[in-house]
Write a protein that binds this DNA or RNA. Structure first.
Length: 970
RNA sequence: GCGCGGUUAGCUCAGUGGUAGAGCACUUCCCUGACACGGAAGGGGUCACAGGUUCGAACCCUGUAUCGCGCACCA
């Protein structure tokens, strides 16, 4: 078969991905007797596009999954997408505006939602197909979406259960309001950003003491119309005596002074060091002020509209203006009134809406909150101890330790330091605002009397009867609450009556609507559905086979940016909903290990973003370099727990590597494939033994690195082994045999090559799934294997194990061959160096003279000759070099390159001089150490011996250098 | 303010007490019968700084500087 000279990934990748799908290679069988390994994908936004973060994240998951299959596990990698409330709704709104110049209100809720679903149908498959292009081995038959009917039922059920427990409640609170998306946000969705602005100082008159003016500092003068008090610290001697008196608020200008009187109150919250020590209190527009207001029963005057513009209460001159325009206008008014004392440039932190990138507005509104469940368990289950050293030392031999025999029952974070961040968050946890004023999402499953009902005693009465009846019937999954508060109209405490309904009550909800009830219009925070992901995707609340087999999942791979949004909440949900005995789980925790990836940045260290345009399109990279190249390059530059500076050079490197692998196999194919079944130990050369020992070391190293989630270490070890050790040295050395005429040894060498390559392909497969599959079949390695061990696909070939003692004994793989062959290659390097010194072209064949220390086997001399591209390497134990002959000293002996009359004596002198200097420096350092009595006495004997030996070796090298130099002089 | 992480070759980073490493970039040579997406050889580092512990420190301790991140923030 003709093999192309360069690897062409495109057709190969498509072919094998189709093959894997057709053969159901990714499907997880819950009935399997094999030990389970499972991952749930962090669901990407349903309408999202693949970016480099996804590449990093999903490549890691694919590596873990493929490695687990090769370890003989039953693997479930469960894929899916997230409905991503705000993001998706904003996308559709934007498109609607652009294409039809309409808003969602023009369409109405129902019609708008139809459009979003249509949008989802159109764009929803894209990212899934992109993941397939990357080679992801997800079980696509189990793809889930957070708004699938079954999934929605889970969300509803969970809501009802938490509502029943009293953990979910509705309340009027200060929330983070995004004026652009016009919805409340959770604290986690607010990002603090330093902002340049001004600190404004203005004065107010104390009405009881017209000669007394107080100066107040503020960054938000536009909120003055909403001020309902001025606060000072009761212990502040400057102001304490004024408490109880009043000031005249300067804005709105047109109001008569008596309507602008606000009290001076004393509150400990006021820091008298800061500003002027006098604080304006705006309960409607500041969280801290709201709390002060609560303590002092201050009125709450909301002067803003939901979109961030000022309302009529802000006064004529401000009403209708955007809050930032209003700020400037307010300052103008203060100036006109002559009360603006000063304005100073000022930098402070302002909370921004993460999604819309505008300052959030603290706003008092009615929202749903969740008091987090299972907080203590969630805190305790994560291991705070750093066990990385333990892992390193114990896991090397035990390739399977990760999932089968956890070191403790705890969950492990990698890198471990995130455990502290997690713990800190849980310690200071606040109730979660879960309602969003959006349309796209899971609607809150609570019904209340409609406004119409509330204002009509007759309808209200009907509703009341219905609700009472419902309460008495005591349906499971239906909760009726009559809170104490609320205005009385007729018999019903109207406004606050709530009916919370679980899944499967469609008839009932119809009747409810007929009886004057209406469903709460809010939807739930997207994370209120994603926090159920590990079990809601596996058939919960039924006790499915999938849950029994694959929950808790083994590994979770995600970015640290969603540790609070997602990881922490999934853990709490796990303990809250999976602890029931019916699931028969040893632990309710959703995963045993969490691997936090770094954040992908560009090569200047900037975060990748659409606006910067510094985010390459992974699909474009795949088209140009191949998916394997992209995966390899990404993994190679992604050290554990560090951010990844992405550079296209890395992908290029990956492509080059695939090409190298391709050509190494091509080389083997060109050696007329007469492979023999077994390697014959009698015919092994020292180079053969060397490469087998190197392979053995590489297997251990790579396996250990993978067990510790050190993907970049594993990739680098693979790279080094394959390129430097196998290709650069072994393949070149083996040509001494392959180009010779001993057919038995030739066949044996090919057998060694096959052994090494078949192991190498398996070691590479998790990283480079496509090219390894292609070569696995192309090289014929699949042919002799049982179907479930590599016969059908390399996916199920066994992960290589380090060579055992029997094997090493049988093939005579003694470590001494490592030293011996290393010395041989060192001799070659030195010899090539001589060539450069003598300025002899690499292609010119020359004769070397070798003066060995010990007997050197002829076969090794053959290899040396070949690697030196020498005409001959003549062994001469009593060789006397002519003056200026370039020479090198190695462990195996001295090597000379006689050059008839071509010697550049000066150049050789310089070279030897350098060598002498280096050696003398090393000798001096070592001698100094050995001369130190403290050193000799206290150092471990082994280290002492090492130093002594080093001195002897160095001296042995130096002497001939000195001689050579002397010869040059004379 | 509190916490975390980084500072090692021009660049990106390995390196957990015993002779400073890799890849890329650079210099020189080579299209030698797998591969120019390749091969060979080479140059290049006071391991941020200052103290301390130790026979010995890139590594352990203390402090400083600096960059980044997270949390909390006072008008």
């Amino acid at each position: 078969m003709e093999i192309p000279k360069a690897y062409e990934p495109q057709s190969v990748e498509e072919k094998w991905y189709d093959f894997w799908l057709k053969q159901n290679c990714f499907m997880a069988n819950p009935k399997s007797l094999k030990p389970a390994y499972s991952i749930v994908i962090p669901p990407p936004n349903v309408t999202g596009m693949l970016h480099m973060g996804h590449v990093l994240n999903n490549t890691i998951q694919d590596i873990l999954s493929r490695k687990a299959r090769m370890d003989g596990k039953e693997v479930l990698w469960l894929p899916g997408t997230d409905h991503a409330g705000i993001a998706t709704q904003m996308q559709v709104e934007r498109a609607l505006k652009k294409e039809e110049r309409k808003t969602k209100y023009d369409l109405g809720r129902e019609e708008f939602l139809k459009r979003v679903w249509a949008w989802k149908e159109k764009h929803g498959g894209i990212i899934i197909n992109q993941l397939k292009k990357l080679g992801c081995s997800c079980d696509w038959t189990r793809e889930r979406f957070t708004m699938d009917p079954e999934y929605s039922r889970c969300v509803q059920k969970v809501f009802v259960e938490l509502y029943k427990k009293g953990l979910i409640y509705r309340g009027k609170r200060m929330v983070n309001w995004c004026p652009v998306s016009q919805t409340a946000l959770s604290d986690e969705e607010v990002e603090m950003k330093p902002q340049k602005g001004f600190m404004y100082y203005f004065k107010v008159q104390v009405s009881e003491e017209p000669n007394t003016w107080l100066t107040i500092a503020t960054t938000r003068p536009e909120t003055i119309p909403g001020d309902t008090a001025v606060a000072v610290n009761p212990r502040d001697p400057r102001y304490a005596h004024l408490i109880g008196k009043h000031v005249i608020r300067p804005l709105p200008v047109h109001l008569p002074a008596e309507k602008k009187l606000i009290p001076i109150i004393g509150d400990e919250h006021v820091d008298f060091e800061f500003g002027t020590g006098v604080l304006k209190v705006t309960p409607a527009h500041d969280k801290a002020d709201f709390e002060i207001g609560q303590r002092h029963k201050l009125p709450v005057v909301d002067i803003m509209n939901p979109d961030g513009t000022m309302n009529d209460l802000a006064g004529e001159s401000l009403a209708g203006l955007d809050r930032f325009e209003a700020r400037d206008v307010a300052v103008e008014r203060l100036k006109e009134l002559g009360v603006l004392v000063e304005e100073k440039p000022y930098e402070h932190n302002v909370g921004f809406s993460q999604r819309a990138d505008v300052p959030i507005e603290p706003r008092l509104s009615e929202q749903w909150f969740l008091k987090y469940p299972a907080v203590e368990q969630s805190k305790e289950c994560v291991d705070q101890e750093d066990r990385s050293a333990e892992h390193r030392s114990t896991r090397i031999e035990d390739g399977d330790s990760r999932s089968d025999a956890p070191r403790s029952d705890k969950m492990h974070f990698h890198p471990q330091r995130w455990a502290k961040v997690y713990d800190h968050w849980l310690t200071n946890i606040q109730d979660w605002c879960i309602s969003r004023q959006l349309w796209w999402g899971h609607q809150v499953p609570v019904w209340r009397p409609s406004e119409k009902t509330n204002s009509n005693p007759e309808l209200l009465d009907k509703a009341w009867v219905f609700a009472k009846q419902l309460e008495e019937n005591n349906h499971s999954g239906v909760i009726v609450r009559f809170p104490e508060t609320g205005e009385s109209i007729g018999r019903l405490k109207a406004i606050t009556c709530e009916i919370c309904i679980g899944p499967g009550h469609d008839e009932l909800t119809k009747k409810l609507e007929e009886s004057g009830f209406t469903q709460d219009p809010d939807v739930l925070d997207t994370w209120f559905s994603s926090w159920l992901w590990p079990f809601a995707t596996m058939g919960w609340p039924e006790q499915t086979e999938t849950l029994k087999k694959f929950y808790p999942t083994t590994d979770l791979v995600t970015g640290p940016d969603i540790i609070f949004f997602w990881v922490a909440r999934m853990i709490m949900a796990g303990y809250e909903f999976m602890s029931e005995p019916k699931f028969g789980l040893s632990d309710a925790m959703p995963f045993r290990n969490v691997y936090f990836t770094g954040i992908i940045r560009d090569k200047q260290g900037r975060k990748m973003s659409k606006t910067l345009g510094n985010s390459p399109d992974p699909l474009d990279l795949i088209a140009r370099y191949g998916a394997d190249a992209l995966r390899f390059g990404t993994m190679r530059s992604a050290p554990l727990g560090q951010d990844v500076l992405f550079d296209e050079k890395d992908v290029e490197l990956g492509r080059n590597f695939c090409n190298k692998l391709w050509n190494a196999c091509r080389f083997r194919q060109m050696q007329s494939g007469q492979a023999q079944e077994e390697i014959n130990p009698q015919l092994l050369s020292s180079d053969d033994k060397w490469i087998l020992l190197k392979l053995d070391a590489a297997i251990s190293e790579i396996t250990a690195a993978l067990n510790n989630y050190n993907f970049s270490t594993a990739v680098q070890a693979l790279y080094r082994f394959f390129w430097n050790e196998y290709c650069d040295w072994y393949v070149e050395a083996s040509k001494a045999v392959l180009y010779g005429d001993d057919t038995a040894r030739k066949a044996n060498t090919i057998a060694v090559i096959d052994f090494v390559l078949s192991h190498t392909l398996r070691l590479f497969h998790p990283f480079l799934p496509f090219i390894t599959e292609e070569l696995w079949h192309g090289m014929g390695y699949a042919e002799d294997m049982p179907d479930d061990q590599g016969g059908k696909t390399i996916m199920y070939a066994r992960w290589p194990k380090p060579l055992d003692e029997d094997f090493k004994g049988h093939y005579g793989l003694d470590d001494c061959y490592l030293d011996m062959v290393n010395a041989k290659y060192e001799l070659v390097t030195q010899g090539r160096n001589l060539r450069r010194t003598g300025n002899i072209s690499a292609s010119k064949r020359v004769k070397y003279i070798f003066k060995p220390v010990n007997f050197t086997p002829p076969r090794d001399l053959e290899v040396i000759k070949l690697l030196l591209n020498a005409e001959a390497v003549e062994v001469n134990e009593s060789y006397q070099a002519a003056k200026g002959t370039p020479s090198a000293r190695t462990e195996l002996g001295e090597l000379y390159l006689p050059l008839e009359g071509l010697v550049d004596v000066a150049a050789e002198k310089v070279r030897l001089g350098k060598e002498k200097e280096k050696l003398e420096g090393d000798i001096a350092k070592t001698e100094q150490k050995l001369a130190n009595p403290n050193f000799v006495q206290k150092v471990p004997p082994q280290v002492l011996a090492e130093h002594q030996q080093r001195l002897i070796d160095l001296q042995a090298k130096l002497d001939p250098v000195l001689e050579a130099l002397k010869a040059l002089e004379g």
